[in-house]
Design a protein around this nucleic acid. Structure first.
Length: 678
DNA sequence: GTAGGGTTAG
């Protein structure tokens, strides 16, 4: 230890803590060790306070607790200070830990600390609120209006309307805040009428009262009534506008929402932007959501964790790995809190963008995980064709995580089995769902099973499965079987299935495409003509194949038949060269793809020009050697291209990762991770 | 006290 005077030493540490808000764990530990081994530092209240604040900012609860536990004499003001000023930084569980420490050290508890703790509990809908309730009763704080309101709110946020109403009735004095909390509680439970009654009866209304009523009607789906309240509200603030914008977003009226958004001008805050972004996200306008973020940055509005969650979701859908990575770096550089939601968004984004390793790194690094996180990993492995890994993670979740699998878990698990041809395992987990886990199979689960059986060529079993289902099969279920029929070239069953599909949904033009192709295969030309006529009459909408590839942080999109890309000529010549080389290697185009291709319309174009090939050729021309090429396609990759890409990967010694409509294909050295089972 | 966030069969 250096022989610096204690007071100087203390000052130096204090400066260090104050100057950098986010100290790495190692540094915090170092400082902690110094405090604990140096009696004079130990007694410096300001230093201890600053240290605990620093822990709170870095969300480093263990460091804070360890220090508190090792103090030779408790310093009440320190803990009080930390709890009060940094309660938002800790989770309710962590606050409870600190609180217990406070009780253990016999530090006097005041009302204000409970208010802070209850707020944290309400925010997280945590059941810790109940332990606090008991403590509040014990300490005799029941007459405190603020405390009771906080308690009411913490019950309300968890959907415990009963206890909330009881508390409200027992309150002698009910101020605006208490009434507002009650309105929110009632509206959260669909009791719109009661909420309105309470609202009307209030002698004085605050802005929050009006806003609560706006949200109340929005939640009910009655945006028109919400708008009436909004227009009548004499004290409109940013919350009123945000609530109204969200109301329009939730019913899909993005245009109206955007008009209000524009009208707000510079009154917009981060919540406004987040609301608008999530609105576009739910309309599947992922690109718009991302460009909104760029605008948000230009207006210098600080993005929050919520912003990042929406952005990452957009990246996942688009397969924009580089943008996703950039956001991840932003989150780290700006010390945003990677909570379960944000962590899950990262996991999901990395899986959907084809980066399994980083997805797992994030997953393993999360201090606490919920069912969403586990589900994302199980589904993630599934979409990459790692069925066995998905099962391993499921078993780990089931046996050691303490988190119960839910219906989504099984959707992921069953689809993972289906993608990997794990017939036996899929059947077993499906049959265990109800008995072992108490989860009633939904249409999605039946869909997975039909797909699993069908892919494996067990067509009659799949048909029997559908016909004996306890719920009515939908188009997806029949559609899965139809696809299976095509893969396994069963024209007879195809026809039967297609007829069932048309009965179910006579207006879906896509079904006629199937039927006409089936007739064509059977050379029943008259039936083909009838089908074509119906298709023309119904105006069948054909989705063009479209693939994108990220090169130098730019996404390049190629739509089949579109020759407008500046490098089109170059790509074209390159594709022809590739084609020649591939033939030398033994590749023969057009073999066996006829029945595989679900979007048959696309087949009519020369296979050479399928969008994924154009994207890959472009990637090969414009990226460095060794760099993997990542392609995202809106349709399924056809089997002919699949075959060709295997050869291309070998020829150019490149890893080519293609995400198609339903899964990932990792091409390397002449083979694909799907092992031709897809 | 009032506004914004994640996983879902083909």
């Amino acid at each position: 230890m250096t022989s610096v005077a204690p007071s100087l030493h203390s000052d130096r540490l204090l400066r260090r803590l104050k100057n950098s808000p986010f100290l790495p764990l190692a540094v915090l530990h170092q400082i902690q060790a110094q405090i604990l081994t140096n009696a004079s530092l130990h007694n410096s209240t300001s230093l201890l306070s600053e240290f605990l604040s620093s822990c709170a900012r870095s969300r480093n609860l263990p460091a804070a607790c360890l220090l508190l536990k090792n103090l030779r004499s408790p310093i009440p003001s320190t803990l009080n200070h930390v709890l009060r000023s940094h309660a938002e930084s800790f989770s309710s569980q962590q606050i409870l830990v600190l609180y217990r420490e406070m009780v253990r050290q016999k530090i006097p508890q005041d009302r204000s600390i409970f208010t802070v703790m209850l707020r944290a509990c309400a925010h997280e809908a945590s059941s810790v609120g109940e332990s606090l309730h008991c403590q509040i009763l014990k300490l005799g704080f029941v007459s405190d209006l603020f405390l009771m309101t906080g308690l009411l709110d913490s019950y309300a946020k968890r959907g415990c309307l009963g206890p909330a109403e009881k508390l409200f009735d027992e309150m002698v004095e009910k101020d605006v805040v208490a009434c507002n909390a009650m309105i929110a509680a009632l509206s959260g439970n669909g009791r719109t009428e009661d909420a309105r009654k309470l609202f009307e009866g209030m002698p004085k209304k605050s802005s929050a009262s009006w806003n609560s009523m706006i949200t109340c009607y929005c939640k009910q789906g009655n945006v028109a009534l919400a708008r009436e309240i909004f227009d009548q509200n004499p004290v409109k603030d940013v919350v009123s506008w945000n609530a109204m914008i969200d109301g329009y977003c939730k019913i899909g009226q993005l245009r109206v929402a955007h008009q209000l958004f524009e009208r707000m001008g510079h009154a917009r805050n981060s919540v406004t932007w987040n609301t608008m972004m999530s609105g576009y996200l739910h309309q599947r306008e992922f690109g718009t959501a991302i460009s909104l973020f760029r605008e948000m940055q230009m207006e210098n509005v600080k993005p929050t964790e919520v912003t990042m969650v929406s952005l990452l979701s957009a990246c996942g859908h688009l397969g924009a790995l580089n943008t996703g990575r950039w956001i991840h770096a932003y989150i780290c550089n700006h010390h945003l809190n990677i909570d379960v939601v944000l962590g899950n968004s990262l996991i999901d984004m990395y899986f959907k963008c084809g980066n399994i390793e980083t997805a797992l790194e994030v997953f393993r690094g999360m201090p606490s995980k919920n069912v969403f996180c586990w589900n994302s990993v199980i589904a993630g492995f599934g979409m990459h064709g790692h069925g066995q890994k998905a099962i391993e993670v499921f078993l780990e979740m089931d046996t050691t995580s303490g988190i119960r699998p839910d219906e989504i878990t099984f959707v992921g698990l069953l689809s993972a089995c289906g993608h990997s041809g794990l017939i036996f395992e899929g059947k077993r987990y499906f049959s265990q769902m109800l008995g072992l886990y108490g989860i009633v199979p939904q249409i999605e689960h039946y869909g997975c099973m039909v797909d699993l059986l069908g892919r494996a060529g067990l067509l009659q079993e799949a048909l029997h499965f559908i016909e004996t289902m306890t719920i009515k099969p939908n188009c997806v279920v029949w559609g899965s079987l139809l696809r299976a029929c095509k893969i396994h070239k069963d024209t007879k069953t195809s026809e039967h299935v297609t007829r069932r599909l048309l009965e179910l949904d006579p207006n879906d033009g896509g079904n006629y495409v199937f039927l006409s192709n089936i007739y064509a295969l059977a050379k029943r030309w008259e039936d083909v003509d009838t089908c074509r006529a119906i298709m023309i009459e119904k105006g069948v909408h054909k989705v063009p194949g479209c693939s994108s590839v990220e090169v130098n942080n730019m996404v390049h999109e190629f739509v089949v038949g579109d020759t407008s890309h500046p490098q089109f000529e170059k790509i074209n010549i390159f594709l022809l060269e590739i084609e020649r080389e591939l033939r030398n290697l033994g590749y023969r185009p057009g073999t066996g793809s006829v029945l595989h291709d679900i979007e048959d319309e696309e087949k009519e174009n020369a296979v050479l020009y399928h969008s994924e090939r154009i994207a890959i050729a472009f990637g090969l021309i414009n990226t460095r050697k060794m760099e993997p090429i990542r392609v995202v396609k809106n349709l399924r990759v056809c089997s002919d291209c699949h075959e060709a890409i295997k050869f291309i990967a070998k020829l150019f010694k490149r890893e080519i990762i293609v995400r198609d409509r339903s899964r990932f294909h990792h091409f390397r050295d002449g083979s694909c991770s799907c092992q031709d089972y897809w």
